[in-house]
Simulated scan of single mutants.
Amino acid sequence: MAVIWGLDLKEMRWGKFKGSYMFNRAYHLRTTKMIVYQAAMIFCVISESVGTAMLSDYVDQQDGISTRSQGKAQVQNDDIVGIASFNILVGIAVAVIFGSAFFFDLFWPERQETKTVRLWWKIAAVTVSIMTLADALALTVIVATHSAYIVGVPHEYAQILFENNGKPNAIYRKNAMSVTSSVLLWLGVVATFSSTYIMWKSHQHDDEFGPWSAKYKENENPQS
């Protein structure tokens, strides 16, 4: 089997996805890493998925109302469209960084990495965590305080257009998908910062003592 960047590809086996291996106590912080890395990916990707559906609805709202008014009315909802687009980027970034960390630790927990590689892991983790926090703050503010509105026609006609168009609700906080995406993203924020902290602590331990847990070493070398 090929070896790429010092990683033996034969270690990529389905059997390593078993809970007995994935959550074993042989490696330092292994169980914690497997949990928080997956939590970061799951919460952010689900938030992204819900947000994508929301994004599609608000883009359709622009097209639908413009068509119904024969181009006279223009829906102004670019704030929610923009932050939902950024949320997609954040979801992808979190999945790439912590997804990679998950698979690397799952398949090659004893791998050797240079200081430069370790530094880039840390920089990437901090960067996506800050991106996730910024995304959550912006999305929360927009959902909680903003709403779509129409320009180009009288207010009364604008309200009729919103009503005839149906979903999504012009008031973002009354849209279940907007709220759900925000809540899931905040859970993702907690998970990404937790993942970053655990990654740093794990690297610190590995650099000083190696990847093995203290309990495993005690079992391997019992006191006589």
Rank of each mutant, 00 (worst) to 15 (best):
W120H: 13
W120T: 10
W121E: 12
W121S: 12
I123R: 08
A124T: 11
A125L: 15
A125H: 14
V126I: 14
T127M: 14
T127N: 12
V128Y: 01
S129E: 09
I130A: 09
I130Y: 03
I130T: 09
I130W: 03
M131S: 14
M131F: 15
M131L: 15
T132M: 15
T132P: 11
L133T: 15
L133I: 15
A134S: 15
A134C: 14
D135Q: 13
D135H: 11
D135M: 10
A136W: 08
A136C: 09
A136R: 03
L137E: 09
L137W: 06
A138D: 12
A138R: 12
L139W: 00
L139Q: 07
T140R: 02
T140D: 00
V141K: 15
I142D: 04
I142L: 09
I142Q: 04
V143F: 07
A144I: 05
A144Q: 07
A144D: 06
A144Y: 06
A144F: 08
A144R: 07
A144N: 06
T145I: 09
H146P: 01
S147G: 13
S147V: 09
A148H: 04
A148M: 08
A148T: 08
A148E: 05
Y149E: 10
Y149K: 10
I150W: 03
I150G: 02
G152K: 05
G152C: 10
V153D: 00
P154D: 08
H155Y: 01
H155F: 07
E156N: 07
Y157G: 05
Y157S: 07
Y157K: 11
Y157P: 02
A158P: 05
A158F: 04
A158S: 03
Q159D: 10
Q159I: 02
Q159T: 02
I160C: 01
I160A: 05
L161F: 01
E163M: 11
E163G: 03
E163V: 10
N165G: 04
G166S: 09
K167F: 09
P168Y: 09
P168F: 05
P168K: 06
N169Y: 01
N169T: 02
N169H: 08
I171W: 01
I171Q: 05
Y172H: 00
Y172Q: 04
R173H: 13
R173W: 11
R173A: 09
R173Y: 13
